[in-house]
Design a protein around this nucleic acid. Sequence first.
DNA 1: GTCTATATTATGATAGAC
DNA 2: GTCTATCATAATATAGAC
Lengths: 196, 196
Amino acid sequence: MTSAREPVADGELRFVEFSAPRKRVLDAALDLFAENGVSGTSLQMIASSVGITKAAVYHQFRTKEDIVVAVTERELARLIPMLERAEAQEDAPQARDDLLVEVIDMAVRDRRLVRTLQFDPVVVRLLAEHPPFERFMDRLYRVLLGDDGVDVMIEAAMLQGAISSAVMHPFLAGVDDETLRARLTDVSRRILGLTG
Amino acid sequence: MTSAREPVADGELRFVEFSAPRKRVLDAALDLFAENGVSGTSLQMIASSVGITKAAVYHQFRTKEDIVVAVTERELARLIPMLERAEAQEDAPQARDDLLVEVIDMAVRDRRLVRTLQFDPVVVRLLAEHPPFERFMDRLYRVLLGDDGVDVMIEAAMLQGAISSAVMHPFLAGVDDETLRARLTDVSRRILGLTG
DNA sequence: GTCTATATTATGATAGAC
DNA sequence: GTCTATCATAATATAGAC
């Protein structure tokens, strides 16, 4: 019942293959969303960035909301293999640390993602109100937390924000990936109280 | 040369008194900005929230940009006394810790501020491109950092993000201020490597 | 798959009455 | 200080040709 044209319409979040023209639209949208926010990005901006007209964009996606959903699902789906590996592992603390390392690596390598996925009001609302996204985020946090105490939740929120913020920071745009990843991993383990 | 009607047009960021109608507009704008982002907030939304028409809003502020600037300056100006106290103090590490505690306190008590001031693309651009804001942020970070090394900058960025993120997190909306402040202060000192 | 052209609505912004 | 009315522009979105 799930068609390739309606990603994440029901069921679980999953990896979806997009045609080349669709990929171009999503790539441009992701860049513009990161720079201007979702609400600050018009379809005209996306079309101009791709080098086509608005009508051509509408041929690929029925609404702007569909573009936001597709971008969100495409990028979030990259975490699926990492998450499934972590969930399959028996040693819980080790699973958490492994997932942490992978998440940091993705955040560092594709820094533009973070601003949109973590902080854009439109995406945040989507993540909270769209059940497939909601369930996926729950799974993610279950591995990264392992417990439900308030102190643990505060630490998790701080950790998430610490990583996101460092990766987004304009002052740190010139820092090479290796240095940034190393420091982030180090401080993240300090926040979690891991011996690392 | 600086008129009360043109806050932060030149010179330094400063505290500005607003009339009651202007305050109502700024309060409504701050709430809506926090929820929908600056670009996702129209003047009609602000007007409706205040209970007046768009034209009445335009009587208070000439442009939407002016509202954004006024909101940003008004909230940032609340940090002036804290910053001046910290700059006047001789013991640098103590000044940093004192300022940290005060900034956390403000962030916890007025959580809605943080999303807009730290992460909204429009405000971030304003903070980076508008010299009075730029200079003020430089002063703030000079006290909170005390050094210029890359490692220190990464730690500062992580610290800022950790605090902001925890304070903004929807899952932590129900956590009382005292608990949140205590945990934030604790973990922040851990990030900075303070003995606290 | 992309185009031109157009419809519709919302936006930022102004003029002038009260 | 607020209103009604209006304007110009830009936004989302659609129709139909190539």
